[in-house]
Amino acid sequence: MSNDNQTPEGMTIVVKKICQFMAPTIFLFGIYITVHGHLTPGGGFTGGVIMASAFILQILSYGSFLDKLQQEKWHLELTESLALLCFLMLAVLGLLLATTSVFFGNFLHRGSFGELISGGIIPIGNIFVGIEVCAAISSIFVALLIFKDKEA
């Protein structure tokens, strides 16, 4: 993959074009699954995996440079730990606020059943988990790829 050329090799034009169409759709579907986690099956983890698969598809079809991957990995780790911290903060906020004062307390208004904005902190938690899982799985993939490229 890492050659002296300006652009990395990647796969053929057919694969590249189809990925260009598919990746945004897959990513959007992941977001849908994540934000509807409290209404339908799915949620943070499932949505995050789908989002990460869009990301992985892009890297696989277009290829990437080693130094770029390393920078990417650092960004992904940052995103991952930030999302995790936010999730923890959300749980601790329930502990600190006087209305609930319990770990993972649902301090927001529950809303009416069946609507997208309902369920208090659960959709917010789902979104943080989705970001975290997306970043984590991508960074696992990128880490293994970096390892392989260093070998070559």
Partner: peptide, 23 residues
């Protein structure tokens, strides 16, 4: 008993903050 979750919050928070500020 409000203090019990601290046993999970404190080490987890330490771990995540460490990764975040690692650079």
């Amino acid at each position: 008993s409000t203090l019990i979750p601290l046993y999970i919050i404190v080490p987890l928070g330490t771990a995540f903050i460490t990764v975040f500020f690692a650079k």
